[in-house]
Amino acid sequence: MNFVAFERAKQGTGASRRLRNSGKTPGIVYGGSVEPQRIEVDHNALWHALKKEAFHSSVLDMELAGTTSKVLLRDVQYHPYKQLVLHIDFQRVDEKTRLHMKVPLHYSGAEESSAVKVDKCMVNPIVNELDVTCMPSDLPEFIAVDLSKLEKGASLHLKDIKLPRGVAPVIRGGQNNPVLVSVVPPLVVAEVPAADAVAPAAAADAKGKAKAKSKK
């Protein structure tokens, strides 16, 4: 994906406010061997781009002052209640340096699994994005995960899926094989036989009548 940015000369709270009032969003590009650079981006174009998953997880082409460079979206600041992007950060990409990114997981095929189709289990995704490290050229837009082999009583772990070539997971907290998807058995509701359901009601009714008779 690509977007157009413009050089931003002024900085400060007042300058940023005036920039937003003119339909632009202030931002910054940092990283690499050059100094951080202040930029501005058309707000409406940016707002629509941010709705696309790929804008958050892909290497982007940024056109600035007639030059195109590779960047990653690193941070977005939104207004608390208005549909307004207050500030945006990008990081320059070095093609020879490994990236550390969060990549979305796209699950599919659960309805075809025996866990759902036969045993009527519930499939609950626990992890929706995965921390990975890879070279910029190997960064996937998303990671597809097939759930068609799920079975009752078994969960899907990280080591159960095949990652794209050149992509390695980033493990934290000593969990080298975390659960990605859990399979929950269906809730079994015990049915009360009709005779057993009527008996307590009849007993209560008879007890009530006996109490009323004793009062007379």
Rank of each mutant, 00 (worst) to 15 (best):
Q77C: 05
D75E: 15
G14C: 03
G166Q: 05
Q91Y: 04
S214V: 12
Q77M: 11
A115L: 07
A45S: 15
A5F: 02
K162F: 02
P200H: 10
Q83M: 10
E129L: 00
K207T: 11
Q37E: 14
K159H: 10
A202S: 07
R8H: 11
L187E: 12
P193I: 03
R98K: 15
K102N: 11
K52N: 14
A15I: 11
M1N: 09
P140A: 08
A195I: 13
L150N: 08
V103E: 01
D42R: 07
D196P: 02
T25R: 02
K51G: 14
L180S: 09
A206S: 09
E111I: 11
M1F: 02
D75H: 14
F142E: 05
V118Q: 09
V181S: 07
R8Q: 12
C134V: 08
F55P: 01
V167M: 10
R92L: 01
R98W: 03
L60N: 00
K70D: 14
V4P: 00
K96T: 15
L50H: 00
K120N: 15
K207S: 12
V59S: 03
Y30W: 06
I28L: 13
Q91R: 09
A154T: 15
N44G: 03
K24Y: 13
A201P: 00
I28H: 01
S148H: 07
L50V: 03
Q175A: 10
H43D: 01
T97R: 14
E129N: 14
A197D: 10
L99S: 05
S22T: 08
V170G: 07
G32I: 01
Y78H: 15
P178K: 02
M101E: 13
R18C: 03
M1W: 00
F3N: 08
L84G: 00
M122V: 14
H87T: 04
L105K: 08
I161D: 03
K120V: 07
A204L: 10
H100R: 15
R20P: 09
Q83P: 02
V127W: 00
N128Y: 12
S182Y: 04
E53I: 02
H48T: 15
